[in-house]
């Protein structure tokens, strides 16, 4: 018997910080995939559009022991009381009930930037100026993704156009379920170190679910209680403690260190 019930997905990813070399391929692939216009010369790290942003974090230890880890951070796809969702005055942020993906609807966005204030991960970006492509570049725009205009907020949506394409392919084959191999976001695909594992967290046998359940997996600012669907993985204890703020500095250290 045919059922109308659709499969309930919960897409998420695990980023292995042990593997990430900080090359930035994910950032570039993401920008190309999602038609993010090239930055103008005056752009800084604080006002550019980097849906996937890689930051170098140092352990702070003295010379022979010092370590650095690169943290690629995109929208963390919060699941519980999604901070940006509840604050948007005009429903420009939505969660797809089928995939769990937090989406941004730029066509509805007023540009009030309240969601950016609400986001603890600073994963939302505002179009401070009109996007501009040099002549040749318009030829290589992704036809499946609408470019955004000035004055609206945008962010990672796990490459929505790719999900759409996967669905269409599945529908053409007469299936209601997408093939996991067909839906891989650009950052995952481009990572030369294969540091990012993507998939359905609802499927306990999927690589992403298995890796997320690993004891060395963690999430940033987990104690805020927003339940992000982007997990990180590191074998280094200082990285895990840093991310979860589980080992907070004492008052003495805070004021003198």
């Amino acid at each position: 018997m045919e059922t109308n019930e659709r499969k309930q997905y919960r897409f998420g990813m695990v980023i292995d910080l042990d593997k990430c070399s900080g090359c930035g391929a994910c950032t570039v692939a993401c920008a190309v995939e999602n038609n993010v216009a090239p930055a103008v010369p005056s752009t800084t790290t604080r006002n550019g559009l980097t849906w996937m942003n890689v930051t170098a974090v140092h352990s702070g230890a003295a010379y022979p022991d010092c370590e650095t880890v690169f943290v690629p951070m995109s929208c963390q796809q919060c699941e519980n009381e999604t901070p940006c969702l509840t604050v948007c005055p005009q429903n420009a942020v939505d969660i797809d009930p089928v995939t769990g993906i937090v989406g941004q609807v730029p066509q509805r966005c007023l540009g009030c930037r309240y969601c950016m204030t609400a986001c603890p991960y600073h994963a939302r970006y505002f179009n401070w100026r009109d996007p501009e492509w040099t002549d040749g570049m318009t030829q290589q725009l992704n036809p499946d993704v609408a470019p955004r205009m000035r004055g609206v907020v945008e962010k990672c949506n796990f490459c929505h156009a790719r999900l759409h394409a996967a669905r269409q392919k599945a529908a053409a084959n007469g299936s209601r379920e997408i093939d996991p191999a067909d839906y891989v976001p650009a950052c995952v695909e481009s990572c030369p170190a294969s540091a990012i594992t993507f998939g359905d967290l609802n499927n306990p046998s999927s690589p992403v679910a298995i890796l997320a359940a690993d004891k060395n997996s963690f999430r940033f600012l987990a104690r805020l209680g927003t339940e992000p669907k982007v997990h990180y993985h590191s074998s280094k204890q200082w990285v895990r403690e840093m991310a979860e703020r589980s080992k907070t500095r004492t008052q003495q250290e805070a004021f003198h260190g």
């Binding site: 604050v87 948007c88 005009q90 007023l110 540009g111 009030c112 505002f126 004055g151």
Partner: peptide
């Protein structure tokens, strides 16, 4: 002036998210 797309201010009235404090303010 502060919002990026002031011409869309009426959206808040047309399809409000009533859980947002900003909707109440507006």
């Amino acid at each position: 002036v502060d919002v990026g797309q002031p011409l869309r201010a009426w959206f808040t009235f047309w399809h409000p998210n009533t859980h947002s404090m900003l909707t109440e303010v507006t």
